[in-house]
Design a binder for these strands. Structure first.
Lengths: 105, 105
DNA sequence: TTGATATTTCGACTATTATCGAATTATGAA
DNA sequence: TTCATAATTCGATAATAGTCGAAATATCAA
């Protein structure tokens, strides 16, 4: 994984409003949610939300499909796992013993 | 884990220069490295580096100990694992099946 | 002490990012 | 068509974050 992409993904999650959005989409699951639903669930104005969703989408953390006049957003679990894998590797590479404890927590 | 802390940790890693620093410290291991060594290894001006190290230290991702006139910085692996755990939980909570595949990568 | 080295803090400036209303695009229904 | 709804893009402003030199602090050695 290119570190530039990792930085983009981390940035996408490194903001309270976006982390909220992401967690909401995780809770919703693979079916995803329409932009309007996210806006009211997370209490964000449409244009600001759109901006955040774009950022998360550009780095691949979420995807989008149209359904009628709604845009449905959903978590890309593969991308999220790639990020978690990157962090685990980055943390444990060369020091596996240090990272085993705590990981079951 | 409080999401505010998660945001701070994610922010600490969501910047190329800081991610570099962090990865350098991971490679160095538990003994850590002096600020000066980090500065030359990562090619960052001392004052800027100090600013970044502070940010990573405030959220607990790294620690610091004095050794003579050097300040030795080292990764806090427990904190890093807490973060990884948070992301894994946040990603997999309620949808364990979605997150199993990909995790062995 | 005094001087040299390692690092941090301060302050000013620059750059990046977030926010929101207004205007625009896209779709569906009458 | 025409109207209403859902969402995005645009443009301006506000807020946050990064950078760096100069000054300050801490430690060690002579």
């Amino acid at each position: 994984m290119k570190t530039e992409l990792a930085v983009d993904m981390l940035s996408a999650l490194a903001y309270a409003a976006r982390l909220d959005i992401f967690r909401y989409l995780v809770r919703i699951g693979p079916d995803g949610a329409a932009a309007g639903d996210i806006a009211s669930a997370c209490n964000i104005t449409p244009s600001t939300l759109s901006h955040h969703l774009n950022q998360m989408r550009q780095c691949g953390l979420i995807g989008r499909t149209r359904q009628g006049r709604a845009q449905i957003y959903h978590v890309n679990f593969d991308a999220m796992n790639t990020l978690i894998g990157f962090l685990s590797d980055d943390c444990c590479n060369g020091q596996p013993d240090l990272c085993l404890k705590g990981n079951e927590k």
